[in-house]
């Protein structure tokens, strides 16, 4: 499976939601889509799913356009915040029947198992479900669709911590039993970073990073020590954040952290620590002062 996102522009009136975004996704991976609120994540997922035609640019799946292409869109599943593909007046079991009709690879047993684990009753009316149970229904519908590309857009909302961990376990099981591509958008970066093979970061409608998660983490470091030494050390390096406590200063550096970098820091008596996915993301996307 391969997804080609080519030069997507999306305008909403005067607002530019996506700005010349190109991205290519291949193979079977769990990919994290990270970005601040309003960065364009949901718009992008809607366009990939063929729910929306972008102002310009296109999305191809295995070489075919996704927009208004039923043969392609049945291979994609996008689960949004509140499992909104189902009617509120229906019961959960009716939503399953509808999904079974729509989805060529529908796995009814899997759906019922997941609903049972999340304690969602088949007889419940969808309108009566709590936010967390609605999210769980979305997850069950999304995973049981067994689509080639499954996109889960902040589906964790309303789920308490035990339910989220259940979701992560079931997602991993699904991925291992039947390797396919998942795109997950979430603000709970710390929780999901460990099982993301790749990361895509969008900021202000533009692609900021796409690549392997470990590679991303290896590009960020906090350099800490005497303020004057730190200032001297970071000359010519990309500093994405600073914190100071008395005479001690930490500078967050983004770029290649190689042996030379580490040896120089050690010679200068400075500590170098990894930032981790979440902190690095925060420093890279935080509002700039100017």
């Amino acid at each position: 499976m391969n997804i080609e996102i080519r030069n997507i522009h999306q305008r909403f009136g005067d607002t530019i939601a996506l700005n010349d975004l190109s991205l290519s996704i291949e193979g079977t991976k769990i990919i994290g889509l990270l970005g601040r609120n309003g960065s364009g994540k949901s718009t992008l997922l809607n366009i990939i799913a063929g729910f929306r035609k972008p102002t310009s640019g296109k999305v191809l799946m295995d070489g075919e356009p996704v927009f208004e292409n039923g043969r392609i869109t049945e291979r994609l599943a996008l689960i949004r915040e509140v499992g909104d593909t189902v009617e509120d007046s229906e019961k959960v079991e009716e939503a399953l029947r509808y999904a079974a009709y729509l989805r060529p690879n529908w796995n009814d047993e899997r759906a019922r198992y997941l609903l049972d684990r999340f304690e969602v009753s088949l007889k419940s009316k969808i309108s009566s479900l709590s936010r967390g149970r609605r999210s769980a229904l979305g997850i069950a519908l999304g995973l049981a669709a067994q689509a080639d590309l499954t996109m889960l857009d902040e589906t964790y909302l309303g789920l308490d911590a035990p339910s989220r961990y259940l979701f992560y376990d079931e997602l991993l099981q699904d991925y291992m039993n039947q390797p396919r591509t998942f795109i997950l958008s979430s603000h709970l970066i710390e929780e999901i970073a460990r099982f993301l093979e790749d990361i895509v970061i969008i900021d202000h409608g533009k692609l900021m990073f796409h690549g392997n998660t470990e590679q991303f983490v290896s590009q960020g470091a906090a350099v800490t020590g005497n303020a004057a030494d730190v200032d001297r050390f970071v000359v010519g390096k990309k500093v994405i954040g600073e914190r100071q406590l008395g005479r001690t200063k930490s500078a967050m550096v983004y770029g290649e952290i190689n042996i030379g970098f580490l040896e120089q820091a050690s010679t200068d008596g400075l500590d170098v620590e990894s930032l981790g996915v979440q902190d690095l993301f925060v420093y890279l996307t935080q509002p700039k002062d100017e």
Partner: peptide, 14 residues
């Protein structure tokens, strides 16, 4: 690898 991945909740590729 799958057992390790499930136990530690990490990507099997890791």
């Amino acid at each position: 690898t799958n057992q390790y991945a499930a136990f530690y909740r990490i990507n099997p590729a890791t």
